[in-house]
Design a protein around this nucleic acid. Structure first.
Lengths: 120, 120
DNA sequence: ATTATAATTAGAATAATTCTAAAAACAGAG
DNA sequence: CTCTGTTTTTAGAATTATTCTAATTATAAT
């Protein structure tokens, strides 16, 4: 594992924001000012391929990257904010039903986050 | 509802392919040779806003558009092929648990489609 | 130290999508 | 009908996210 890959992986694992490549790039720059956006993209791609992080493709905005630990996502339909949520009881069943053939799954639940709900 | 919006909506509702804007554009062109890609994008956006179709954002490829009828998706992790699937028993529970606050949800199950599995 | 291999950089290239301004189509009032 | 205002469509430039290519730098192995 390369230098930058290691730091990027830590950034993702330590934060519970769901950062885009660009946001990770800015974080990374704080300690590694020489790094370049393409490097972040490259490393994110290899980390995904190696199955060390998870890519979340979002409607209407750039992909976000997340730790592996299994969980689902609540996504605000209005502002796009993402938060973690576990629908364990349900997804346990899901996994059982799906069986071996399944590689993974992605459950996104869309709602209006508290802030956006007030604005209405 | 405008002329092209109507045809696009029909194309989506009549097919069970999960077409990208570009694929829809080529379909549309068969009967409406003058239409332009931007028009397809515009109409897809308004159809989505009006809640008449559903946008599926896919990992690593362009958004696909789908009819409203509630169902889930099986996505081949390798070639990206999308097919419909209903995990009704599970998602009924999901909806019950989620309750009022929820706008919608999106469940994608990743697997290896029969073709890709053979290739291995 | 020398060479081979892999990682990073810089920046051009690409793909998907949006934006802008002009042209065309349509709809209603006279 | 014909004029006028509004909406839709068009053409193409612009933008955003991402990938690619080639050169450079760093790392590891001999």
């Amino acid at each position: 594992m390369t230098k930058y890959a290691k730091i990027i992986l830590e950034l993702i694992n330590q934060s519970d924001r769901h950062m885009t490549a660009e946001q990770l790039f800015f974080e990374l720059k704080k300690t590694e000012p020489k790094v370049v956006l393409a490097t972040v993209y490259n490393n994110l791609n290899t980390l995904c391929q190696e199955g060390l992080i998870r890519r979340l493709s979002m409607e209407g905005s750039a992909d976000r990257f997340d730790k592996l630990k299994k969980h689902d996502h609540l996504v605000c339909k209005k502002c796009g904010a993402v938060s973690d949520q576990s629908f364990e009881d349900l997804t346990k069943d899901l996994e059982k039903q799906l069986g071996e053939a399944i590689v993974s799954y992605d459950l996104k639940v869309y709602y209006l986050c508290p802030e956006c709900r007030e604005e209405r």
